[in-house]
Amino acid sequence: MKNYEIIEHTADMIVRIKGRDLKSLFVNAGLAIFQISAEKQQVRYPEKHKIIITQKADDIEELFINWLNELLSLSAVEGLIFEDININEISDKSVEAVATGTDLRNYKVNTEIKAATYHQLKVEQIGSGWLAEVVFDV
């Protein structure tokens, strides 16, 4: 079962993501970006690339936006589609992770996600889990 869903937005895209804890919320949100935008084709470049990501912020919402934008930016610069994310440490104000990706030429990229925005952003603890809603500029 997918741990994200796309909600209607006239010009851009709202994604609702769930996670059993904060760590899995960040992992699921990060991977959702690439699952939505890219479709795997024949793997011609199997080499896996690992990138260490460290982000800091003043609060959880800022951390969430910075995290997603860092993944988008690194994906564009390194020419990678991230397929796996391991978060080593996470708090309300910082995250340390390793993202693993392969060459984007293994994929057909259907949608260009430019950035994650603060508009109507939600990052909330609900019951025993976490939920986020984020508007992406596409």
């Binding site: 937005h9 006239t10 010009a11 851009d12 925005t117 603060y118 508009h119 508007v135 500029d137």
Partner: peptide, 9 residues
């Protein structure tokens, strides 16, 4: 005009 993020488009 339509719904954007922050500013309307």
């Amino acid at each position: 005009i339509h719904w954007g993020y922050g500013f309307p488009i």
